[in-house]
Amino acid sequence: MLRLHLGPADLCRVRFADRLHPVGTALLACQALHDAETALMAPGPAADAAAATGPVRSAASVLRHLLPARGRLPDFLTPLDGLESVAAGLEAIRAVPVGRVRAEVAAAYARLPGTPLRRRFAEADGEAMGLFGRALGTWHDAVLGPHWADLTDAHRHHVAGASAHLAAHGLDGLLNALHPAIRWEASTLTLTVRTWWSASLSGTGHGLLLLPSPLAGPQPRVLVEPDRPVLLVYPAPMPRRVAAGAPDPLGRLLGATRAAVLRRLGGPGRHTTTALGQAVGISVSSASEHAGALRAAGLVSSVREGGAVLHRLTPLGAGLLGGGDDRPTGGT
């Protein structure tokens, strides 16, 4: 469990990252795409990673050897600088002082067997760092490059939805709707996750930078560096698009995303707000907004059960889907 205590200076500077960081995203993805839950959030990159051959497969082997398979990555590998390109991100990594590289890599390797390449990487050896940079560039271009436009669209989609939630519910409502593992209360952001480290941290006074990403991994991550905003990266699935050219009268009536939510509620299962968001490929806050709009239209009913809100179709909603009252309503 992580507790992050934010002061007024931090809360006055809460904002979303302008865009995904090419190098930071790639490094998180190298870990995250081995997780089945994350692979479902980003099926395109997951498929390309699994199908890698030749130089891309060799690059993946280098990265798997140099990076921990799970858990905390050395902080210097996910810089805030270098947003422009992979090359700029790698340049930001190369600019990190050698002492910091050695300390953070040594900590990351604490439970890994030593190998010649790992020892050279931990010493910030120029040849080892060059090998790492080339492998990362090759892997990024082959696995993430073909999907970068969709990843960027997904980021913008989630930021737009979260911004609307902020406007409607304030900062308290926004922070409590980011992810089921994130809770905001009494100036403390608590991350209740199966984490590889536990701590109680204070903000830096430079704000909180929020970054939704389908490649964050199965749980939120936090980066705290002096004189920098605290970075909070949290899982956010890619939106699932309606097939190009396919006729969709319901989508034209309700909007593609809201129609997808309604259709999901027409299937079997226990439809919590979180489950709806994951199934449709939208944030939890966006799923809540869409469910609320459908409820206001009389198409959906919602009840609270413990800490979750369960949704199901009303007879009117089932009729709109074309199944009448006998259509499965996705009850509890």
Rank of each mutant, 00 (worst) to 15 (best):
A279T: 02
P45V: 05
T25P: 03
A186T: 13
A9M: 04
C12Q: 15
A106V: 00
L33K: 09
V23W: 01
V23C: 11
G82Y: 04
P328L: 03
P226S: 12
A124I: 03
T138D: 12
L232A: 06
S200P: 00
T257Y: 00
W184K: 02
T204C: 09
G133N: 05
L191S: 08
P55W: 02
A108V: 12
G207A: 11
G133K: 02
V309S: 11
L131Q: 15
A95K: 10
G205S: 10
A51P: 01
T204D: 08
S61K: 07
A246V: 14
T195K: 03
E84V: 00
R94P: 00
L83Y: 01
G203I: 04
A181E: 14
L73A: 08
F132N: 10
F16S: 05
G114P: 11
P247V: 11
V96T: 15
L253C: 12
L189H: 06
G319F: 00
V56N: 05
V98N: 00
R100Q: 15
V143E: 10
L166G: 06
T115H: 04
L253K: 06
I182R: 04
A177N: 07
R264P: 02
G145V: 09
T195E: 13
L262D: 13
T78P: 01
F16H: 14
P247H: 05
A160W: 00
M129D: 02
T53G: 00
L310K: 06
A236T: 11
M238C: 15
S85C: 06
G89P: 06
M238G: 00
L211V: 11
R327K: 10
G323C: 11
T332V: 09
G89T: 04
L6S: 10
A287H: 04
R120S: 14
R312V: 02
G307S: 14
P68R: 10
H157E: 13
L4T: 05
G277R: 03
H206F: 13
V56Y: 01
L299E: 12
L231M: 08
D18V: 04
P79G: 03
D35S: 07
P220V: 11
S58D: 15
M1H: 12
A36N: 08
L178V: 06
G71Q: 08
A26K: 03
